[in-house]
Design a protein around this nucleic acid. Structure first.
Lengths: 215, 215
DNA sequence: TGATTTTTGTACCGTAATGTATGAAAATAG
DNA sequence: CTATTTTCATACATTACGGTACAAAAATCA
């Protein structure tokens, strides 16, 4: 899996492309697209300007690649955090926990969600970024919706609930956590709000880590 | 109220400060803080650079003033949209309607909420903006909380609800509407989601514009 | 009218930003 | 060992950006 590629012809790269992309992503994540200069990206990746350009294209292209990478990570996170088996409440609570940890991470302080807090900013004036952000966020909606649909079939949600609507509101909790993390809300408060959100979405039934059925 | 100020000593201003601030705010709102140049601000306000500087200070100070102005507008909007009398559901639904209209407005396309979509972006690297955004958003939380507390006392919300937690989730719906507006979600979808949010927060009781009690 | 005050408008300064040209460096191929 | 290929690293070109100096303009005050 970490198999070395077959030796290439010229001088070897001094950087690992995946790692460099992750580092560039982190830079955009902190300061936003417009607020990140090529010098910032160069410092974050350790690559000089021409290498950056050769590897990822211009700043705009690099940012779109950062979004794509983030989207892949988000997709994987949703899938592992929302397994089909097990109670919905636990899964949703766990997902929000993981999201909070991600949103609070960052070298320069809590930084929320890349899409919510940097891509959406550019979305008004930049159609490409708008499309990329929208696709990524709607994929998250879809993952929630699939899980809620399943939960309803399993009787884990009332028959009367609308999985699509509920999914958008589950995403809303993520959006809110992202915003609040970024403006400095503490982990304790974020966790408390997330728990309220889980209760509101799933109903005030048995708690996330149920020990015994009610009664 | 629109009383002319007493005549000042030197050459009269060629701009109206309030109007200019609103125009500068609109520029920031579209492109974000980092994405808006002084030339953009100059074009938006019709003021030349030195006048801008003389009137509002540097770009950073001007942006903070834009946040303050927005905060005042938001405060007024919350107060008129959430009157103490009347059913909570109608008030909340109406507030979201107004928010959606605001978030969809904009010369260059829907632009969401200034705080959520431009101030939060800068919040990681800029402590002053972070503090200003946080104060503004928490004031909105507080307004929701006060209204929910009142509703609970009036019996318009179950005794078991937590006004503070519910307020944060009511804000979450605003955050989501802002994000989604900015990435291009249609008004119809936004209204639908907002209605779901109202139902979730207030419970599936009588609808916003009740014609007759259920039964 | 002439002095004073304040704003305007142009032109400018230094810096930072994005992107690129070019030659040295480091590998493989024959 | 030489040729070839690919990347690196410095330096550069051009534009954009934030901010300001300065003189003309437009008002009030005496």
């Amino acid at each position: 899996m970490v198999q070395k590629d077959k030796p290439r012809r010229g001088r070897p790269r001094a950087y690992d492309p995946d790692r460099a992309l992750a580092q560039a992503t982190a830079a955009f994540w902190d300061a936003g697209y417009a607020g990140t200069s090529l010098d910032d990206l160069s410092a974050a990746t350790g690559m000089n300007r021409p290498s950056l350009y050769g590897a990822f294209g211009d700043k705009h292209t690099l940012y779109l690649k950062a979004i794509e990478g983030y989207r892949a990570v988000a997709r994987a996170g949703m899938q592992t955090a929302l397994p089909q088996e097990g109670p919905l409440k636990a899964a949703l609570g766990g997902l929000y926990q993981r999201a909070i940890s991600l949103y609070l991470s960052g070298e320069h302080g809590p930084r929320g969600c890349l899409l919510v807090s940097t891509a959406a900013t550019e979305a008004v004036m930049d159609a490409e970024i708008r499309r990329a952000a929208r696709a990524a966020l709607e994929e998250i909606d879809a993952a929630f919706e699939a899980r809620f649909r399943h939960a309803r079939e399993q009787g884990d949600l009332p028959r009367s609930t609308d999985p699509a609507a509920l999914a958008k509101l589950a995403s809303a909790v993520l959006h809110m956590l992202s915003i609040r993390a970024r403006i400095g809300t503490s982990r304790a408060v974020l966790e408390q709000i997330a728990a309220s959100g889980v209760d509101l979405i799933c109903g005030p039934g048995p708690t996330a880590r149920r020990k015994a059925p009610p009664g």
